[in-house]
Computed example of a mutant assay.
Amino acid sequence: MRTLVTGSAGFIGFHVARRLLADGHAVVGIDGMTRYYDVSLKQRRHALLRENEIFMGCEFMLEDAPRLEEVVDAFAPEVIIHLAAQAGVRYSLENPRAYIDANLIGTFNVIEAARRAGVGHLMIASTSSVYGANKEMPFREEQRADHPLTLYAATKKATEGMAHCYAHLWSVPTTVFRFFTVYGPWGRPDMALFKFTENTLKGLPIDVYNHGRMRRDFTYIDDLVEAILRLTTLPPRSDSADSPAGPFRVINIGNGSPVELLSFIEAIEEATGRTAIRNYLDMQRGDVPATWADTSALEALTGFRPNTPVSRGVAAFVDWYRDYHGL
């Protein structure tokens, strides 16, 4: 299977590409190598992928439509897995323009390239953040998602709408994933697990928002990758009940079992053998007190339900962090 993976030097894209390569699939990866966080980490990920001769890595921004079209035309992918995005809920408060450029323009270019190439399955990453102010839990795909609380969430919801239009107008088979707090080895330095682990090992305080009264549906990276790969061979059909207007579906990928933030911190303390210095703060703008995925649609389609416990996933991350930094 020829697969194009965008964001291949990013946390999730790297793991997806590595698994595809391990399973013998040809992969072309595209990454803009933006400086949102340490580029050397992205370079290390891409270097590992390049050790496999059936991987080709390209470095450019998806806003460059002509370059994207050249790569797609030359490779003729059967599947496109679009994971590139300007990530981060909080950073969208500081640099909103980056989200418009990457998440809207970049994603439109990917969707248009998929249409031109006639790909068999377009797969696009979205986020649990689109559920925004919804209070009914667990979050289900059929719930309305009309009240995003950050520009990041708003851009992701907009990309879902664009993808649905193309599925309807041009019959582009499209699956949108809504990811729930993905974590694990090679994770992003801006995410809580990385920052909490780093500061705890250094004896520095960690910022605990809403005084720890938060719950997250933490999803281990290997579970997420397994779900994505199982879905690659299951493109939606035009006559699907998922979307009577075209071959389109939205799928939650989460662990289905929210964990208290303080329990998450305790897992980090257990894995590091250190006690975290906790700096309790009020809720930050754009945050929500809880997320919780209903994963019954994923299980019905694939027979798989993510289930890695936080204690095991956190321990795997801490082992990687120590190895990566030579601790």
Rank of each mutant, 00 (worst) to 15 (best):
H121G: 02
T308M: 15
L327C: 04
T200H: 06
V318N: 01
L122V: 09
L21W: 08
W292V: 01
S40T: 12
L48T: 07
V314Q: 03
R278D: 05
P236H: 11
R274D: 03
P96S: 04
Q284D: 02
L231C: 15
R115I: 15
F317M: 07
S263P: 01
G32T: 00
E141R: 03
A76Y: 00
G273I: 09
R178A: 09
G273M: 08
L68R: 04
D319R: 15
L224M: 13
G88D: 01
D101H: 14
E51Y: 08
P138Q: 12
L298S: 02
N307K: 14
P205E: 09
V79K: 09
S128T: 12
C165W: 12
A192L: 15
D282Q: 15
G212Q: 03
M162Q: 09
D38C: 09
A297C: 14
M1A: 07
R45F: 13
R45K: 15
K42D: 01
D73K: 12
N109E: 01
F75T: 01
I100G: 10
E112F: 13
A102E: 04
P66M: 15
Q284N: 00
F180H: 06
A154I: 02
P138D: 10
A316T: 07
P309T: 06
V208Y: 04
R2H: 06
T127N: 03
L327E: 10
P236A: 13
E141L: 11
V71A: 05
D31Q: 04
F180P: 05
A125H: 09
D64K: 02
I265H: 02
Y321M: 04
H164I: 07
Y99S: 05
R144N: 11
N109M: 07
Y166T: 00
